[in-house]
């Protein structure tokens, strides 16, 4: 319970502070965003292995396989609401939402990183990405 209250408060803090306008002249704003962008874009890109390039996860149209309940694909993060993203990361972080892998990820990140990731993903354009088609291995491929 205590955890949840802290999470709620942190959520409020993260989302409200995002609404603060950037102050300063245009040059300073550019420098700020460039540095921030630089750290966060590489971190956000590390999520791409599961959530797709710029948060546009592959979407499976057919859910024919009974083998799994995750066949429709992983969550699309592109265009996700800042508050929604932050609160989900925070409940992974404090363990109050059970997850297979996300608690590991969320616990390793700072609050500031979560806040900036929320902003980053909210700014990405949502695209429909389908699985990339495989092809037959050719005879001339390296035998070793």
């Amino acid at each position: 319970m205590k955890n949840r209250q802290i999470t709620w408060f942190l959520g409020l803090l993260l989302t409200t502070s995002l609404l603060l306008p950037a102050i300063g002249n245009a040059d300073e704003v550019f420098v700020f965003t460039a540095q921030q962008n630089n750290h966060i874009r590489a971190l956000a890109a590390s999520c791409a292995a599961c959530h797709g390039t710029m948060g546009n996860a592959v979407v499976n149209k057919s859910t024919t396989s009974a083998a799994s309940n995750a066949q429709e694909g992983n969550a699309v993060l592109a265009g996700m609401d800042v508050a929604d993203f932050s609160s989900k990361m925070l409940v992974f972080r404090d363990g109050s939402r059970k997850s297979t892998v996300m608690h590991h990820h969320a616990k390793g990140l700072s609050l500031d990183e979560i806040k900036q990731l929320a902003m980053h993903f909210s700014q990405q354009k949502r695209l429909l990405v389908v699985p990339f088609s495989a092809q037959a291995l050719k005879a001339e491929h390296d035998p070793l």
Partner: peptide
């Protein structure tokens, strides 16, 4: 196993 398949599809596309 479902998530692992999703991982593979996303990392290939990425």
């Amino acid at each position: 196993a479902g998530y692992a398949v999703a991982w593979s599809q996303n990392i290939w596309a990425d």
